[in-house]
Design a protein around this nucleic acid. Sequence first.
DNA 1: CGCCGAGTTGAACTGAATCAAGAAACGTGG
DNA 2: CCACGTTTCTTGATTCAGTTCAACTCGGCG
Lengths: 187, 187
Amino acid sequence: MQTLLSHINSYHSLNDEAQKAVENCFEQHVFSKNEYLLTEGKICRHLFFLEKGAIRGYYTLDGKEITYWFGFENDFVTSFHSFITQQPSVENIQFLEGSIVWAISKERLTRLFNEHHEIERLVRIAYEKYYIRLEERFVGAQFKSAAERYENLIRQSPHIIERVSLGHIASYLGISQETLSRIRSRL
Amino acid sequence: MQTLLSHINSYHSLNDEAQKAVENCFEQHVFSKNEYLLTEGKICRHLFFLEKGAIRGYYTLDGKEITYWFGFENDFVTSFHSFITQQPSVENIQFLEGSIVWAISKERLTRLFNEHHEIERLVRIAYEKYYIRLEERFVGAQFKSAAERYENLIRQSPHIIERVSLGHIASYLGISQETLSRIRSRL
DNA sequence: CGCCGAGTTGAACTGAATCAAGAAACGTGG
DNA sequence: CCACGTTTCTTGATTCAGTTCAACTCGGCG
């Protein structure tokens, strides 16, 4: 819980009262490797904070799994589309490692927004950061070569290589596993 | 101004007091075709609402212009990265048609957030919509073929063809103008 | 020991880029 | 209202990055 609070404070520092409220609303859960946080067709009713571990979001297309995001320590995770719209998810969310997460339901979060302007502000600020991150990734996907995307990834998260299989990384970068293997052999 | 207010209310309806505050904080500007709202290197200090007209955001890479978004009626526009971080913009924002915009400075917007929880909520909700939109576009860029991306675009905004040149659309889709021309001839 | 998943390597294929040239449409001045 | 230059769009030939399919290697584990 301390991890969550100090992460939150790095976005926007909350007063004691709001912090207490946050503490009361998140619940801890522990998952083991390969377990699912959410599967296709279910409505995602919670927002999660990943205290420890690793996780991926993927959907299936023509029988293949397309991994399109990873989460690690200190990431907020959810099926964004499903959580916001409360429609069935098209994606699956699966743990890549044994993990500790903190969960809050959408209703509780909404209640927190109503009771604490500060918490809505915090989330507004968090959205800004996540939006910028996604924008950068979009530009990479649309306008950069496979090798450049890989190099960027390694520069930004060098640790990822030891924690995620090559196949998942290739998928994340939008390239085939063979191509990624060849890119690596050239470095 | 009525356009802006009714658009805002479609996201999240504001009480009279907050609406008044919004009215007082946005200023109208009129621009003609090819004028710039922002150029590379400048810090974007305003958020804009496009009441009428069309606009594009682009950056230059190897001497070529890469258009990566368009704005039309009822879109909020800004250089998101620059506006949020208050760092120099890497992008240019240029009008494609004579346009009417409403502008609010970052300071004024921040003040509105402080004075009206509701307005911060409105923006939080707007971010959610814009995030989902970007996420869809990202998935398209990473995992769909050029032809599919074009077809999706036409399905979502059939009007775009009459208002934006082929070259800009090709750039937006992340393909060359020649390829787009060939895709069209095949339909 | 043999199997299995993860990663590598090779060869053929393909979607899209690039280079190059021409055709249409568009706007401006005479 | 036409003539000319400019910009926009199309079409063709060639090249290239990345995919696909297939075979092979390697390390771990029952």
